[in-house]
């Protein structure tokens, strides 16, 4: 299976080589989509992990044992449907095309699976409908 997750570090866990362990011990393919790691603050990393279902589960267990918080990406990136006017401005900056226009009804769709949490949509959305609750 392949999934994008957000890992949150506490100050005490930022020096642990978790990505190495995921790859070496659990044979997981990883892509670091985003990371902000600070020695004195809580840190985060957006990771795409791919592997067998068993290895994936074991990898996640390992991360939890390391006392890291794991969240699916859609929990942290969301669109306020009451504010979105489907203008399409976000689609012009979304390189992975996670935000795209459904040509049937000309509404803007959001495909979480493609999102790399770059936050550009949050910056450009004219009506501030996009929210990313990264620390």
């Amino acid at each position: 299976m392949k999934k994008r997750i957000i890992i949150r570090f506490k100050r005490k866990t930022i020096d642990k080589p978790i990505v190495y362990r995921l790859a070496k011990d659990y044979d997981l393919i990883f892509a670091i989509l985003r990371a902000s790691v600070f020695p004195r603050a809580d840190s985060m990393m957006v990771l795409e992990i791919e592997g067998t279902d068993e290895n994936f589960q074991k990898g996640i267990e390992y991360l939890k044992d390391m006392n890291l918080d794991i969240e699916p990406i859609e929990q942290d990136i969301n669109r306020d449907e009451s504010r979105c006017v489907h203008c399409g401005v976000c689609t012009s900056v979304c390189a992975p095309e996670a935000m795209y226009i459904n040509r049937e009804d000309m509404k803007v769709e959001f495909d979480y699976e493609k999102c790399v949490a770059c936050e550009l949509c949050v910056k450009v959305c004219p009506v501030k409908a996009m929210n990313v609750s990264f620390e």
């Binding site: 006017v85 489907h86 203008c87 399409g88 401005v89 689609t91 012009s92 226009i101 009804d105 000309m106 509404k107």
Partner: peptide, 11 residues
Amino acid sequence: TYPISSYSKAR
């Protein structure tokens, strides 16, 4: 191409 105005709202 990218729209700036909302066609769905226009509809």
